Amino acid sequence: MKIYVASSWRNLLQPAIVSMLRSSGHEVYDFKNPAPDNTGFAWREIDGGWDTWTPQQYRAALEHPLAKRGFKHDMDALRGCDACVLVLPSGRSASWEFGWALGQGKIGAVVMFEKCEPELMYLGNPILTSPDELFDWAEFNSANCK
């Protein structure tokens, strides 16, 4: 099964989730390493002062070739995935990716191994609270995805 893992760059659990799913035989997209020659997109590649941008500077930065390349990598992976796993805590981009995937009819699950702020809109998707639940979910959906 092709799985898109959506999370935050700051989430220390994200690399372990990618590893666990890959070790179970799944093809997993890792936004931190989307391709052999690509360590993922970061705003600092465009401008080291990205965190002080005005709305106009942000809008202009979205047109930068590096931003467009990063967006294309992520969107191509989202379009091609069978399932999207949202690893909490996450940020705005991951929430958008998860919602987009669900809107396209992809399978979804939320990984919440630690206490997080509740979110009503996760209703209808499994909340996986341990590695065993994640493995079981992936195995079940992989068998039913074929």
Score class of each variant (00 low, 15 high):
Trp53Glu: 07
Lys146Val: 11
Ala101Met: 10
His73Asp: 14
Thr54Gly: 06
Ala61His: 01
Ile127Val: 15
Gly49His: 09
Glu139Asp: 14
Leu21Ile: 09
Lys115Gly: 04
Gly91Ala: 07
Ala6Met: 01
Thr39Asn: 14
Ile127Trp: 02
Tyr4Asn: 04
Cys84Ala: 14
Val87Phe: 07
Ser93Leu: 13
Gln57Phe: 10
Ile127Leu: 15
Val85Asn: 01
Cys116Thr: 14
Phe98Val: 03
Ser130His: 06
Glu119Gln: 12
Phe41Leu: 11
Glu119Lys: 11
Ile46Tyr: 05
Ile46Leu: 07
Trp53Cys: 05
Leu12Cys: 04
Met75Glu: 06
Phe135Ser: 14
Ala6His: 05
Pro118His: 02
Gly70Ala: 11
Gly25Gln: 09
Leu66Ala: 12
Ser90Gln: 04
Pro131Leu: 03
Val5Met: 00
Ile127Met: 14
Leu21Arg: 06
Glu27Cys: 02
Asp37His: 12
Gly105Asp: 06
Thr54Ser: 15
Asn33Thr: 09
Lys106Asn: 01
Lys106Val: 08
Trp100Lys: 07
Glu119Cys: 11
Gly103Tyr: 12
Asn38Glu: 15
Ala83Ser: 10
Asp51Pro: 00
Arg44Asp: 10
Ala61Lys: 01
Trp9Ser: 09
Leu86Asn: 03
Leu62Tyr: 03
Leu134Gly: 01
Leu66Ser: 13
Tyr122Glu: 07
Asn33Ala: 14
Arg79Phe: 09
Leu102His: 01
Ser93Gln: 13
Trp53Tyr: 07
Asp76Phe: 05
Gly25Asp: 10
Gly40Thr: 09
Tyr4Leu: 04
Met20Tyr: 02
Ser24Arg: 15
Glu97Cys: 01
Asp37Ala: 14
Glu114Tyr: 03
Leu88Gln: 03
Asp76Ile: 05
Met20Gly: 08
Leu128His: 01
Glu119Thr: 03
Leu123Val: 09
Trp9Lys: 10
Ser24Val: 07
Ile46Phe: 08
Leu102Met: 11
Gly105Val: 03
Gln57Met: 08
Met20Glu: 10
Arg44Ser: 14
Ile17Pro: 06
Arg10Ala: 15
Val110Cys: 05
Phe135Gln: 13
Ser130Ile: 08
His26Val: 12
Arg69Gly: 06
Phe135Cys: 08
Leu12Pro: 11
Met75Trp: 12
His73Phe: 15
Tyr29Ile: 05
Ala67His: 13
Ser95Asn: 12
